[in-house]
């Protein structure tokens, strides 16, 4: 078994032997439900789709993804197991990938468990299930991007609280980057090209297209690139910390 797989399995198991996994899953599902039915006008819209459900996901992830990612490296640094892990014959990339994949699969599981909402919408009407699948994929990709940010920032500190706050702040910045209010703020101060660049960094902008069912390669590329870049930054930080 490759080190990536071994580490991924260990991490996944560690979620489920502690109450972390169950607490997280319950809160995720309850919040997803509340946001969809109350804040998202699921019924009153009278349209058989899951758009109100997906639109809330960035805000859901803003709180819950940092809670998953904060422990990835901070906990190892705190308990001293980082030394054990880094003296095993694995590269930092393999370790990072194993941990990231475990967390990403876990969030994927949480997403899958929202299936009753999909059943509901199919019972109530006849939605375009292709769009819904695209929405799920997009949501999972976005969760991956948030997770990669969290995994990277978790390497900076041995305090999980600090890791949580840093991640939440960066994520909220990336969500808001594309909002008109934010762009207006920059409009006067920055050249137009830079403002456009900021707008393109926005998670929301790329996610909204996918949530509407448009699987544009550029949006997928954006999320994949975000994941790779933040994981690479995390590996770099781990390596820098070795030479301290």
């Amino acid at each position: 078994m490759s080190p990536v797989m071994a580490l991924m399995r260990r991490e996944l198991r560690s979620y489920f032997v502690t109450p972390v996994a169950y607490v997280f899953l319950v809160i995720f599902l309850v919040l997803a439900g509340i946001l969809t039915f109350y804040a998202g006008d699921f019924y009153d819209r009278g349209i058989a789709d899951l758009q109100p459900f997906f639109v809330m996901h960035p805000w859901l992830y803003l709180i819950l993804v940092p809670a998953v990612s904060m422990r990835l490296w901070a906990e190892e640094a705190k308990s001293g197991t980082l030394e054990l892990l880094q003296t095993l014959p694995t590269s930092l990339w393999q370790a990072m990938l194993g941990k990231f994949l475990a967390a990403w699969l876990f969030i994927g599981l949480a997403l899958l468990l929202t299936f009753p909402i999909w059943i509901t919408v199919n019972y109530l009407g006849s939605p375009d299930n292709g769009i819904i699948i695209a929405g799920y994929l997009g949501s999972w990709l976005m969760a991956g991007a948030f997770l990669a940010i969290g995994a990277c920032l978790s390497t900076l500190t041995s305090s999980q609280v600090v890791a949580f706050i840093l991640t939440a702040v960066v994520c909220v910045l990336l969500i808001l980057a594309g909002q008109p209010e934010v762009l207006d703020f920059f409009q006067g101060a920055l050249p137009r090209k830079l403002v456009n660049a900021v707008a393109h960094l926005s998670m929301l902008r790329h996610f909204e297209a996918i949530a509407r069912g448009v699987l544009d390669l550029r949006d997928i590329f954006y999320f994949v690139l975000t994941i790779v870049a933040w994981l690479a930054a995390g590996v770099l930080i781990l390596d820098l910390k070795r030479s301290h």
């Binding site: 580490l7 198991r13 001293g80 003296t87 095993l88």
Partner: peptide
């Protein structure tokens, strides 16, 4: 790969059982 190392304070993953932990180390070492 050639080295067996016991770090200061013998850190290990507390939530794992001894069997799980040793199996994990063996898998990591391929």
């Amino acid at each position: 790969r050639a080295l067996g190392y016991l770090p200061e304070g013998a850190p290990s993953y507390g939530e794992m059982t001894v069997r799980e932990f040793l199996v994990f180390i063996m898998r990591m070492r391929g």
